[in-house]
Amino acid sequence: MSEKYIIQIKNLTKIFGDGVEIKALDDVGLNIEQGEFMAIMGPSGSGKSTLLNQIGILDTPTSGTILLDGVDVTKMSDKQRSVTRNKQLGFIFQYHHLLPDFNALENVMMPLLINGVKRSEARKTASKMLEEVGLGDRMKHRPNQLSGGQNQRVAIARALVNKPSIVIGDEPTGNLDSKASDNIYELLRRLNREHNQTFILVTHDKHMAAKTDRTIQLVDGKICEDSRNGNGD
């Protein structure tokens, strides 16, 4: 595994609220290596999702820096952030957030089209990606014609189709039963190994966290535990 850190977080603080201030992240420092498959755990309100949204540059910190691939994303313009999200980051949320008016294939094509890829090429890449997540036979189905697990697979295909270096998942299996959860976890793990992409997953599920390479525990906006799980390559 390369020693180069793909994500370097220094003194990251995020304060919410005007009036009553809530410190969601309190001077967090964290380095993540290329290809790591890690879990962020912690009780509700500990700042897990906030940290994830900071790494995903969906939100801006109150102070501190985040370097993605050596570039400080906290200093980026709105447009640069959009481009970085499109090219370097993939998102999987608890709720799949697929566009309900588009079928599975079109949903997976969307990040490519946003990136300006030609339609025919996008279709080819997206269908390959859908086959990879085991939905080669469900391409023309709309989200309302698919099961929860299938929709989450489509969402994973969408998150990975642009070959992002970092994939972040906010409770990606939170809405699924344990069997579907396991399947999704296996899929993510396989994709991580095949493409050497960095996966950062927020989860409540200890069972799932234990199967990752590394787990960090957040409490009140601070990292209180950072452990290697011995599942790595």
Binding site: G56, L58, D78, S82, K87, Y95, L99, M110, P111, I114
Partner: peptide
């Protein structure tokens, strides 16, 4: 939600 997801996917404002 859809608008938020489009933004996450890199759609500009």
């Amino acid at each position: 939600g859809e608008i938020g997801m489009l933004m996450a996917m890199g759609t500009s404002r």
